[in-house]
Every structure is written in C-alpha cells, then in structure tokens.
C-alpha cells in the first residue's frame, strides 16, 4: 500500500459581498478520516465543501493532496487542469441529490466514467453496475430519477461518486432533504462507506449519526473552526462555550448517551 495521503487545507477565506463566510480555515484530513462537520445554519459548512471542489472560488486558500498543491483562489483562471484534477479527486454528494434528470440510474453512474475518465462503455457499465450493487440499487438501474424515491436517488448519487474513485468524498447534508422514513437507508450506506475506509467530510445535522461514524468532528461557527476533536470529545466534553451553547440548543449535551 502506498503511503497514507493527507489533505491539507490552508488559510481558506471566502466572503460573499461583505459577508465573511469562511474566515481562515486550516484543516488537515488524513486518509481514512471521516470528518463530521457541525454548526449552526448559515455558518459556512456548505461553502467550505464547495470551495474545496471549486464550485465556489474563495478569496484565498490552498489545498494539498499528496504531492500536488492547488491554489483554490485562482486555480480556475490560471489552470483548468488543476480544477479538473481537483474535481476528479473529490466527489460530492448533494443535499438535493442532483441526479441527471434525463439519464437512468445506470447512465448517471456511467456518465463521468465515460466523459471524464474516458473509459469504454463496456468498462463503464461494469463499474457502474458494481457500484449500484454496493448501494443496493441494481434493480433500479434502468429507472430515471423521477421514478425513484429520495433515498434511492441519494444512493444512486453516492454510487455515482464512488464510481469515480475519489480520494475525498464531500457530503453536504445528504439526508436532510429526505422524508424521515428514508433517512435510515442512506445513513446505512454512508456508514458502510465509512467502514470501508473512505475518506469523507460529512456535513450533517444528524448529530447522533456523526457521533457514531465520524472519526473526528469539527464545530464550525461564523466561518471559524471553534472545536476540533473526536466526536466523543466534541459532544460530551466541548472545550468552548460556543460549542456547549450549540449542543445545548440541539439538546444534545444533556444526553451524552444519545444514539440512534
């Protein structure tokens, strides 16, 4: 096995107009980490993920993946290769699934393999079926997104990400657009990924779930990392008053044994 990779994010700053959303984020993620990100609404959790894969361009910041270093603030303008490279090494699971509407589940998973990785259709199909199998969706391979429940769509979206073999998976509230009865199947899939050793950043309001699967947890507030530790540390013995406040509001602090 190759040496373990690290993802080092440095001095990430992003503002929208005059609204400072990320205020200097420094973050190192080790291969195999499942990093839970929690924090109040509007605090920049989504923006953090979106800056990492360049859906937003920050004012400053860089990311180091293994040997390559990418300037996040102007990768787009100076070098398209860097953006593409970065996006190939990261995968994103969206809150609203964002499956390609005019493609079947199978085609959704095959799309990037063919257009981005230039694989043959046969090879792409084989990989796609394997990934659909992993998320338990092979039976629905020929279904279009509109035929699928939210939970099923999200599982296909996860298969679409897995098929690209990303080094880092970014998940932005993957269950919060789901009906309550569908949350479980998606969490189950994510848990499975965590157990398989995928490196992930998981933004979620499912605190109990984060506690269970994350190897590390950060609390983000006003664009800064306020708390950083193991889920157990962050949830049961937060060092910062702001974290305690937040957890109290979520009524989680008083129930340290709370598990799903």
């Amino acid at each position: 096995m190759a040496e373990k990779q690290r993802f080092v994010i440095k001095d990430l700053k992003k503002k929208f107009n005059n609204n400072v959303v990320l205020d200097g984020i420094d973050l190192t993620i080790n291969e195999g980490d499942v990093l839970g990100v929690i924090g109040p609404s509007g605090t920049g959790k989504s923006t953090l993920l979106r800056c990492i894969n360049q859906l937003e361009v920050p004012e400053s910041g860089s990311i180091e993946i293994g040997e390559s270093q990418i300037d996040l603030s102007n990768a787009k303008k100076s070098n398209l290769k860097n953006v593409t490279q970065l996006r190939q090494r990261t995968g994103m699971v969206f809150q609203r699934f964002n499956l390609f509407q005019k493609k079947t589940a199978l085609e959704n998973v095959m799309e990037g393999l063919i257009t981005v990785q230039k694989k043959s259709k046969e090879e792409a199909r084989e990989i796609a079926l394997k990934e659909l199998d992993r998320v338990g969706m092979t039976q629905w391979a020929n279904h279009y997104p509109k035929h699928l429940s939210g939970g099923q769509q999200q599982r296909v979206a996860i298969a679409r990400v897995l098929a690209m073999k990303p080094d880092l998976i970014l998940m932005d509230e993957p269950t919060s657009a789901l009906d309550p009865e569908l949350v479980g199947e998606v969490l189950e899939t994510i848990k499975q990924l965590a157990e398989e050793g995928h490196t992930m950043i998981l933004v979620s309001h499912e605190m109990a779930f984060i506690r269970k699967v994350a190897t590390r947890c950060i609390f983000l507030d006003h664009g800064k990392i306020v708390e950083d530790g193991t889920p157990k540390e962050v949830f049961t013995a937060p060092k910062q008053e702001r974290t305690r406040d937040f957890l109290r509001k979520m009524s989680l602090l008083e129930e340290p044994e709370y598990v799903i």
């Binding site: 894969n53 593409t84 996006r87 699934f97």
Partner: peptide, 15 residues
C-alpha cells in the same frame, strides 16, 4: 435547467 445539474456535472469533473 436546475442549477444542481450544472453543479453535479462540474463536481464529477466534466468541463
């Protein structure tokens, strides 16, 4: 066309 479609395509590395 939903903005999410653009983003999903971009996120998997499509130009």
């Amino acid at each position: 066309v939903d903005k999410g479609q653009h983003e999903a395509a971009a996120a998997i590395g499509m130009t």
